[in-house]
Amino acid sequence: MTDLSRLINRLRRWERGIGIAAFVFLSAGLYLGLVTSPPDYYQGEVVRIMYIHVPFAKSALLAYTILFAGSLWYLWKRDPVVDNLCHATAGIGLFFTSVALVTGSIWAKPTWNTWWTWDPKLTAFAVLLLIQVGYLMLRSFVDAPDREARYAAAVAIVGFADLPIVYLAAEWWRTLHQPLSISVRGLSLSREIFIPLIVMSIGTSLLLAYLLAVRTQMLYLERLLIAKRGRMLAQSTTTSPLPPPPSG
């Protein structure tokens, strides 16, 4: 129990600071990206959606990595708060994945002249969305909390195999989606584009951390409430002056 409350206490203490930092970075990033950065030579003003699309896509991948690491941690330590953290990560990761897919689709319409194409990178990203949906659905279908946590962790660990495909698809297939701009070959971006992009990326990562802290606490309190209610019900039946109802 001490470990549990330590993590929760820490989350509670950091929550406000992370939230403020996320707000500051996101506002600064949006100002830099939407106002001061120059329009693209080929794409014009459309390129500005990239400052939302790329950071959200990166944070979605980060969220899944946290889910994977958290699942391993849960299986190792069996700490219920870590399970709450994983549960929270899947839901928030689903939100980030959806934002990345929707903004990418809006960007694709003027640039590629189509809302959606079955490009491997896009497909692998859509699969990531489906894995997270499957994960959350599975959680709602298992009745015992302990079993729910173990099964969900198993799915998250197997699903991690999709991540390298998302990350490397544009390299493997040489497709429509542009290849990685930041890789072992060095940086292929100019400074005016890179700075707002990195500020926005920090902003979305902080937003992810903030949402995780809030949601994890919510799920933790929810579980606590259910446990308390169960205990109170048990007490009220044992101390009740009436005889228990006949069973069967």
Partner: peptide, 29 residues
């Protein structure tokens, strides 16, 4: 693996393909 995992949950017939198909994408590719 997913057959073992879904054998003792509600809505087994729904969950099995919903887990197997997206997660076996690397195999299909």
């Amino acid at each position: 693996l997913f057959s073992a995992l879904t054998s003792r949950i509600r809505a087994r017939e729904v969950m099995f393909p919903l887990l197997l198909l997206p997660l076996s994408v690397p195999v299909f590719i």
